[in-house]
Design a protein around this nucleic acid. Sequence first.
DNA 1: CGCGCGATTGTA
DNA 2: ACAATCGCGCGT
Length: 165
Amino acid sequence: MLRLDNSFYNRHVVDVAKNLLGKTLVFGKVKGIITETEAYRGADDEASHAFSWTPRSSIMFGPPGYSYIYFIYGMYHCLNIVTEEKNSPSAVLIRGLKLPDIHLNGPGKICKYLGITREHNGINLVTDNNFYLTEGIINSATYTSTARIGIKKAIDKQWRFLINF
DNA sequence: CGCGCGATTGTA
DNA sequence: ACAATCGCGCGT
C-alpha cells in the first residue's frame, strides 16, 4: 500500500485531519483504519499544547510527518501526527482506530493497545520502517465534524472529525 | 522549587 | 459524577 509522504502532512492541519480518515496506520505488525481525528493548531488555537512553546510541545514546531506522543492524566498516552511546515505548530490527534477484531475509540485506548509510549515520540513516519501511515481501502471518506473532546478552551472550533460508514 | 491540573477512561 | 495517577508547566 502506498505510504503517505511529506506532501500529505505538509498542509493545513484541518485538511490533514479530515484526509486521515480511512487511512491505514501501521505500527509493527498491527494495521488499523483511522476512524476519528482532531486538529490542534498552535497559531490560533488556545486548546493546543503548542499555543505557546514548551519542551513537551516542541515537536509540534518542527517539520511535518513526525509522531507527537504525550503522557496525560498520569496513565495514558495520546498519539498525534505533526503537520504543516516547520514553525507552523500543529498536529492531528488520532482518536479512533478500526482493527480487524476491535474498534478502539479513544486516544488512550489506542496507545495502550498498540503499546505506544513516549519512547515513540519524534519518529519520522515518512521514513520509519516500523511506524507509518499508508493509503487506505477508503480513499474519499465523508465525515461528520463536532467540537473537540475533553478541552475547555476554543470549544467553538469544530475540529473533531468522524468517518461516515 | 512546589503544586494544581490535564487533548482520558472505567466504574458508581 | 468521580477516582486513579503523575509529569508538565505556570507561578513564586
